[in-house]
Design a protein around this nucleic acid. Structure first.
Lengths: 123, 123
DNA sequence: AGTTAATCAGGATTTAATCCTAATTAGGAG
DNA sequence: CTCCTAATTAGGATTAAATCCTGATTAACT
């Protein structure tokens, strides 16, 4: 028997799509739990992790793992003040001269900076 | 009173410098503990974290936090098979067109790939 | 040498993530 | 439609990195 379509998967995926804040699994669980208290936390963690393995969503490791329903190529920026994560357009990256003999397959670019809201507060 | 020079800091920093594997705090503690069993785990975590805050060493977040005594500009690659981390030369990165209103200050580039040893095993 | 605030040891605590097991259920076969 | 079975789930236990706490220690200034 192959992959099964369950209500839980549907709920979790739809919830993630509605969250534009690049949430952690815990944050997704909180949202899901509001409307669907019967869905367990294990299920949220497991389903998100598997969907990321399958490439249906993106997994972002920033200390804690964040998820992103937007799978088109893009990079990320994290606010060093409040921790907010946002998308930035992807830039071309030349191959590094020294690669230590690794076969390079993919790359993750995370910018660090200050988000608009925190820029105001710092003024 | 300002920062103090302690034997523990000296030991931890020298140990990190001798480890070229981009260790986690736990891995540094293991090494330190072999020769200096009186140094506590809290101290290793605290000292490494503070040194990273001060810019004396680099903090690398890859799920777990790794440290790097090499502070000259460079990027990193992680083997997706065995988890090994190595340095790669840093490439210039054009500013992204869309930055979501963030003030961009820094960036982290982590390549994913296969290390030389795992490339052989996969053959 | 005395003073004091920075630092430490050691253990408790937190928290994200994973693991475990019995119960449930999607989806194919008959 | 009903049965079957393997995939999935709920819920709690467990793991492991990281942080926090408290009393003891100590670097470094006077």
């Amino acid at each position: 028997m192959e992959e099964r379509n369950t209500l839980q998967k549907e709920i979790i995926y739809r919830t993630l799509r509605e969250m534009s804040c690049h949430p952690t699994a815990g944050m997704v669980y909180e949202q899901v739990h509001l409307r669907h208290p019967a869905v367990s936390r294990s299920t949220v963690f497991r389903v998100l992790s598997r969907m990321a393995d399958e490439g249906k969503i993106l997994r972002l490791e920033l200390g804690e793992i964040h998820y992103d329903a937007q799978t088109a190529p893009h990079d990320h920026v994290r606010c060093r003040v409040c921790g907010a994560v946002a998308d930035v357009s992807r830039t071309e990256l030349p191959r590094p001269g020294c690669d230590a003999g690794f076969l390079l397959e993919d790359r993750t670019v995370i910018y660090s900076g200050v988000c608009p809201a925190c820029r105001e507060k710092l003024q």
